[in-house]
Amino acid sequence: MDIARQVVSFLRSRGLMLATAESCTGGYIASLISSVPGCGSCLDVGFVTYSPTGKAGFLGVRETTMERFGLTSEEVAREMSEGALRQEACCADVAVSNTGVADAVPGGGPPPGTQCFGWSYKLRSGDFVTFSETKVFDGDRNDVRRAAALYALSRVEHYYDSLRSVERTNGGEHVREQ
Rank of each mutant, 00 (worst) to 15 (best):
E133H: 06
T114G: 13
S120L: 01
G113K: 01
S132V: 03
G109F: 13
G109H: 14
V129L: 12
G126I: 02
A104M: 11
E133P: 10
Q115E: 08
E133C: 12
F131D: 02
W119D: 04
K135W: 01
V136L: 10
K135Y: 03
V105T: 12
P112H: 09
A104L: 14
G107R: 08
P110K: 15
R124C: 11
G126D: 08
Q115F: 06
S125W: 04
P112R: 11
V136T: 14
A102Q: 08
W119Y: 09
A104Y: 08
P106M: 14
S125L: 08
S120P: 06
S125N: 13
V101W: 02
A104W: 08
G118Q: 03
K122P: 04
V105S: 14
F131Y: 02
Q115A: 14
G113H: 02
S120T: 00
T130Y: 00
V105L: 15
F117L: 07
K135H: 07
G107S: 13
G113V: 02
K122D: 04
Y121F: 13
P112S: 15
V105M: 15
G126M: 06
S120V: 03
S132C: 15
R124W: 02
V136A: 12
V101Y: 02
T114L: 11
A104I: 08
T114R: 12
V136R: 14
G126L: 07
P106G: 15
G109Q: 11
W119G: 09
K135G: 04
C116H: 02
V101E: 04
F117Y: 11
Q115H: 10
E133S: 13
V136H: 07
V105G: 11
K122G: 05
D127F: 04
G126P: 08
G126V: 05
D127A: 14
V136Q: 13
G118Y: 01
P110Q: 15
G100T: 06
S125M: 07
T134G: 13
G107I: 01
V105F: 11
S125D: 13
T130S: 14
P111D: 08
G109C: 13
D103P: 09
D127C: 10
P111S: 15
E133I: 05
S125Y: 06
E133G: 12
A102R: 06
A102V: 09
V136D: 03
E133W: 01
K122T: 02
Q115L: 11
P106K: 12
V136S: 12
S132W: 02
Y121S: 02
R124N: 12
V105I: 14
G126N: 08
A104Q: 13
E133N: 10
